[in-house]
Design a protein around this nucleic acid. Sequence first.
DNA 1: ATTCTGACGTGGG
DNA 2: CCCCACGCCAGAA
Length: 114
Amino acid sequence: MESSEKFFEKVYAVVRLIPYGKVSSYGAIARHLGSAGASRMVGWAMNASHNRADIPAHRVVNRKGLLTGKHHFGGSRLMQQLLENEGVVVKDNQVQYFDKHFWDPGKELPCSQK
DNA sequence: ATTCTGACGTGGG
DNA sequence: CCCCACGCCAGAA
């Protein structure tokens, strides 16, 4: 059934919906997918996201607002540059005003409750 | 098949 | 806030 849908595709769908100048966390997305605790898989999905072009993975950070995945961005400050370019203040790999830029899918999205 | 790792989260101290 | 340990699911070796 729908559960057969790729976990990755779900992640991509949510990440792609992240508005400009906003950031989200792996756990929030995982929870939205119905697999709370599978936060690792979200990160793993992002890893595969390099194969996709419309996946703003730089808008996805850990719950601390830390750019944990910047090392995987192929470069070094690319991720931070992109965030700052969108108006997000980043300092020492950490997003400032994280709660202010935080975007919760299960909270902002309409009826996606499972 | 088994084993380990991985862009994490949560709970307890 | 920090640190430690466990859980989580998927993919690679």
